[in-house]
Design a protein around this nucleic acid. Structure first.
Length: 573
RNA sequence: CGGGGCGUAGCUCAGAUGGUUUAGAGCGCAUGCCUUGGGAGCAUGAGGUCCCCGGUUCAAGUCCGGGCGCCCCGACCA
């Protein structure tokens, strides 16, 4: 590609409305432009990267035996009604009325669409297992789009859906996809770790997110440095120190605690450990108040609680509702004497002896509280957040935390969609069975942003060669010297013939501009044709990643450049 | 939806207490000359509904009211 004929739009300064490194660099290098908040278009240069990522994903999907299809992006509301997600997905889903007042949905994800495709075309167990996929646009009206292409309202996703006749089949399909994902991320130069994740509104039994560790990540991850347990905080489990003290049960007693109600203040006031407290929280689960009990030093994991309750909306109750439920202002709630409300206790309070809790009266707490004797808990559940410093549930090592960018997500979905949408095939015995599903997504745009986020320096992007917009660029030092131009053109043309993805910067610009643009854009190799070296019959190749330079005699140039490029590819295979 | 910041040329920004009538700079863009080993130099030129609407005033980019948009933090989110 000739730069003089291409669309190169580079900026010297950071755009003012970009904060993250990848966002700034994508704009500055002229990969994308912003149409509106959360809506980005790809410029020709960015599209080259995009297409390379897409190709790699497609190759690995095909290699894993998945079959590409293309359902409609505009989907009828009816299929969402069938699955029950028309309401669950809420405002995130972009809805459109057509001229006949029919409701259509711009697909935010495609479980329903693919399930419908399979329902229309697959009737026999002999056609299973099958994994279908597409690489297409998704639409989500995000509350807050951010970091450029990282979280936006229109984006490209590769989404795949597996259909199997039984769970064993699903396990195999899942593992195949999992391996394909590992391959994809390796090839695009990302170190993406599979991390145990919550299944969220997708439903299902097992799920893993592929996370690129980065401070920009929106997900908090707990991990064990010893046994490599990685889990999203929403899902992570851990071992905490239990209350083991053997104590005689003391009598229940009310204590004045004027204006003391945070756990921190209470700990000081009573001069004891936060582990002695039974924290009482009031939540609204789909608008019904519930009470949650948890040990004073721990936090409720709202994802776990939501999953346990099976509710759609969960939020902390307002002060008015707390007062209504507990008859006491915020900070003095306790389990004793509560009636007409569902109480769920985290397992952490089981062994608290002579605990302390609110008295459901202003400025009063109760001490000597004992479960069973003073109040009864009917529901115990594991709804506590694991946190850094807890012990690993597998090996006992201390857990640490880090942040990650979610670039892929794989789920064992189960029967949620095939049952709700009534998909059946006949099995060997002529009996109708529901296939079992898995689903698997890779965010293409987010993958690109993540690659930049971890591969950049003060001069710009440093692409892995597998996804770079060009593998190499020829830069003639002068735009006037006919000899330099001729040699540059010759090298350029000869490499095109060898199917190298090469560019030539034939713009009327100073070399400084060309070097800086090539660096900003992140092209792995610069082939520099300069006067002095050319007089000795040599050219120069400079690496983008570490700046190393090799000089090559002209007759060997083509062969040597191809070698360098092929060698580079090996790092990502 | 709460908190904070911002909105002037394609980009990044300057324009105090309203007042040189033609609103500026750097970069970019166009033309010419000159130059080419890390964002060169000189000259000339094009380019603006100062986010929008309303108000105050003899006079508003500047003050007041309302709205819209963008970014960040939080809440939220396959």
């Amino acid at each position: 590609m000739r730069f003089s004929k291409f669309l190169i739009y580079t900026l010297r300064e950071d755009p003012k409305d970009a904060e993250s490194i990848s966002h700034k660099l994508m704009i500055r290098a002229g990969l994308i432009y912003k149409e509106e908040s959360g809506l980005y278009g790809y410029l020709p240069l960015g599209l080259r990267v995009y297409n390379k990522v897409v190709s790699i994903v497609r190759e690995e999907m095909n290699k894993a035996g998945a079959i590409e299809a293309l359902p409609t992006i505009l989907t009828p509301a009816s299929i969402w009604k069938e699955s029950g997600r028309l309401d669950v997905m809420g405002k995130e889903m972009i809805r459109i009325k057509d001229r006949r007042d029919g409701l259509l949905v711009l697909g935010p994800t495609h479980e329903e669409a693919f399930t419908d495709m399979v329902r229309r075309t697959i009737n026999s167990y002999k056609q299973l297992p099958i994994t279908l996929y597409q690489i297409a646009k998704k639409f989500r009206d995000e509350i807050r789009p951010r970091f450029g292409v990282m979280r936006c309202r229109e984006f490209t996703m590769k989404d795949a859906y597996s259909f199997d006749i039984d769970e064993k089949g699903l396990d195999e399909s899942y593992l195949k996809m999992r391996q394909a994902y590992i391959n994809v991320f390796k090839r695009v130069g990302l170190n993406a770790l599979p991390v145990e994740a919550d299944v969220g509104s997708m439903g299902g039994t097992r799920s893993e997110e592929f996370m690129v560790l980065s401070s920009l990540g929106e997900a908090l991850i707990l991990y064990c440095p010893k046994c490599n347990y990685y889990a999203n905080i929403e899902r992570a489990e851990s071992i905490i120190q239990e209350n083991t003290e053997e104590e005689e049960e003391k009598p229940l007693q009310e204590v004045d605690t004027p204006n003391v109600y945070t756990i921190e203040d209470l700990t000081k006031f009573f001069n004891t450990s936060p582990k002695k407290f039974i924290k009482t929280l009031v939540y609204l689960a789909d608008n019904t108040p519930i009470v949650v009990l948890i040990r004073g030093d721990l936090d409720v994991n709202e994802t776990k609680l939501k999953n346990y309750l099976g509710c759609i909306e969960l939020e902390l109750a307002s002060n008015e509702i707390i007062e209504k439920v507990t008859n006491a202002p915020l900070g003095f709630a306790g389990p004793i004497g509560l009636s007409n409300v569902r109480i769920i206790a985290d397992n952490s309070i089981k062994n608290i002896k002579n605990g302390i809790t609110g008295a459901n009266k202003k400025d009063k707490h109760l001490v000597g509280v004992n479960i069973g004797r003073d109040f009864v808990v009917e529901e115990f559940a594991e709804i506590r957040s694991a946190k850094a410093g807890d012990k690993c549930k597998i090996c006992g090592e201390t857990l640490k935390e880090t942040k990650g960018i979610e670039v892929g997500h794989i789920f064992k979905l189960g029967y949620k969609y095939t049952k709700s949408m009534n998909v059946t095939v006949l099995d060997k015995d002529g009996k109708r069975i529901h296939p079992i599903m898995g689903c698997y997504g890779i965010g293409i745009d987010r993958t690109i942003a993540a690659i930049i986020e971890v591969n950049n320096d003060e001069n710009g992007i440093v692409w892995p060669i597998t996804v770079a917009p060009f593998e190499a660029i020829v830069i003639p030092i002068s735009t006037k010297d006919p000899k330099l131009i001729d040699i540059s053109e010759e090298i350029y043309n000869s490499l095109i013939k060898e199917r190298i993805d090469i560019a030539i910067d034939d713009r009327e610009e100073s070399v400084g501009v060309k070097f800086n643009d090539a660096d900003l854009i992140g092209i792995p190799f610069k082939i520099i044709v300069g006067k002095k070296l050319l007089d000795e019959g040599k050219i120069e190749v400079k690496r983008r990643d570490n700046g190393e330079t090799v000089t090559i005699p002209l007759p060997e140039a083509k062969k040597k450049i191809i070698e360098l490029i092929l060698e580079e590819y090996k790092k990502y295979s």
